[in-house]
Design a binder for these strands. Structure first.
Lengths: 190, 190, 190, 190
DNA sequence: AATGAATGAGGTTTCATTCAT
DNA sequence: TATGAATGAAACCTCATTCAT
């Protein structure tokens, strides 16, 4: 009857299509995106969405997790095996990478990190854990001062987030990065 | 069990009652609060709400403005006339005051500072302007180093916010404050 | 306290102020006008409005009556004492006058003659009575044919109304008037 | 007394049910009808209504279109192939048919032709186009005089409408029809 | 596994009218 | 007579979620 043939896919493939459709829309429209929009973009029926995501928040959760994981994968921490590590430089370069990566995802992050969703489902942020680990490792080789790693990581991660928001919001990228680097370096200095 | 008599108040008094009812509920329930809840808490009819606030966002705007103003009023910056100023101590004490004050308002702040509302109606944050002014003043007397005041103020304010959130979320207050103070002091040190 | 002195007027004067305010607004905005608008325009309090008009429809009723009366007053029918009457010409000139008068009141008429109000409170239209009387008088002197005066008056009045609406809606005035005059003259011809 | 099972229909069938429910209510209650009433009458949920009609006015638009189409379908104009046409008789019979048809729909027409809705969404009235075409065709065979077809059609259609309203409102059907026919015949006479 | 029609609680906003002052 | 703060019943519309097919 002219209706496109029902595409029967591997569950994982179908789920991925939905996720990617959601990511495209979230990047473009932030938290204005609705289930309706996602299924249209994915070319899937409404019911199919709820087959894979019991609630809308579950989708956001998945998307958030993927964001975190993708950053980790594309920005791996160096290992000592590769040579001596410039610890302050590492922190700064990871921070800059985070900012640029956030920027490339536009208002995307807001929808999953600052929205009402984030309030409903807080996340023990992976970025904080990474940063905390880096601080500890740097401290072991005397590259960083005696700061308390966990609270400091949390606070520094907030600074990095804010830097990304600032740049995304139109602030002067160079000025923000300079202030950020100065703050990071001074805070962690031995 | 009859309905309570209609109470006629001065507009300002009635508006204040609505605002205070909203503040109580926002403190307890965050952004789940609705017009319906506010009017019940305030003991007024729904129409009365819209008499004073054309839209729900207008109420949030008012509440946010009151929060900012109230902090400024209850935590004035010292003037040189009162004697020499301990600049690093000033920053730290204002930060600690902000944290405790936020804490006393519970999840309140989230509803107006981190919610979808905040995304819809961003605010040139007064706290940042204050901090920026303090940094400049401290720099003039060599109490602070040559950081770029505006971006730095923005980043530091984010740190203070995050500290407040952390403490509100159950993190160890002393540890957070210690990390925060260290960060502030090092970042601004000459 | 800077509040303008309460003007205590003769009831009729106050009522007239309200009516005239309503007429100004109805002329400009048609049935979009609200009680709120009228009292603002009239410079009176809301309660005052309902002191003079128990309901909104009562105001519309009054306004409608005034419209009818004003037309009658400003466009009196000639009496035989003034000389012989050109009966077809009389009908045509009254019709043209009605159109121009409607036009000068803009969408005003719609709000009281074609709106939901008119449906709620139908009016035995005075214009029809006038026309009916003219037809009878003309018939007595053989100026008009043997049409049934009352139904014919009703139908012709509808034609005149429609002509006015057409011209108000942008139709070519001359063409409409020509068609109208032809219709009137032929319908009433001996 | 449980809630009736959810009935899943073809979209067109469900849409039709809603339209017909609306038509029943509009016929009985005119423009007092609300979305709430229609969904109750149709036995569907509120959301279902808005699934098919984005706004209330869209429903009225549909209903109006159906009215016009239905009349055209049940009262086709004769073609010359069927034999010579009695032009004046045709106009009169169509007019009478329109009146009776309007009558059978009760105050229905008012809600879509004379209400505030009609003011918001004017319709290039199909009835006028039909009448205009008939006038032109009659003129070609000298059955009608040299009137200006378009304005005249508009005015005559208003007369027919008014006749229908009059009869619906309780006026003497025969008297109205007689006056109408006289008016039509005289206006269009060669 | 997939569909998409159907749901209905929930939300904001309007405005004629009332009534304490 | 006059005020204007207060009312609350509607009204429209949204959208995550359900479920018959």
């Amino acid at each position: 009857m002219g209706k496109p043939a029902r595409r029967r896919l591997q569950p994982e493939a179908r789920k991925l299509e939905i996720i990617e459709a959601a990511e495209r829309l979230l990047a473009a429209q932030g938290s204005r995106v609705r289930v309706e929009d996602v299924v249209r973009e994915a070319g899937v029926a409404k019911g199919t969405f709820f087959l894979y995501f019991p609630t809308w928040d579950d989708l956001l959760e998945t998307v958030r997790q993927r964001l975190v994981t993708e950053f980790d994968r594309t920005h791996p921490l160096p290992t000592e095996a590769e040579g001596p590590i410039d610890w302050p430089g590492l922190v700064e370069s990871q921070a800059a990478a985070f900012i640029d990566w956030t920027l490339s995802r536009q208002g995307f992050g807001d929808a999953v990190f600052h929205s009402d969703f984030a309030e409903r489902r807080p996340l023990a942020d992976n970025g904080i854990l990474r940063l905390s680990a880096v601080i500890r490792a740097g401290q072991e080789v005397q590259a960083f001062g005696p700061v308390d790693p966990d609270p400091t990581a949390r606070l520094l991660f907030a600074v990095i987030h804010e830097s990304a928001d600032a740049v995304a919001g139109g602030a002067d990228r160079e000025a923000i990065i300079a202030a950020l680097n100065s703050l990071l370096r001074r805070t962690l200095a031995p």
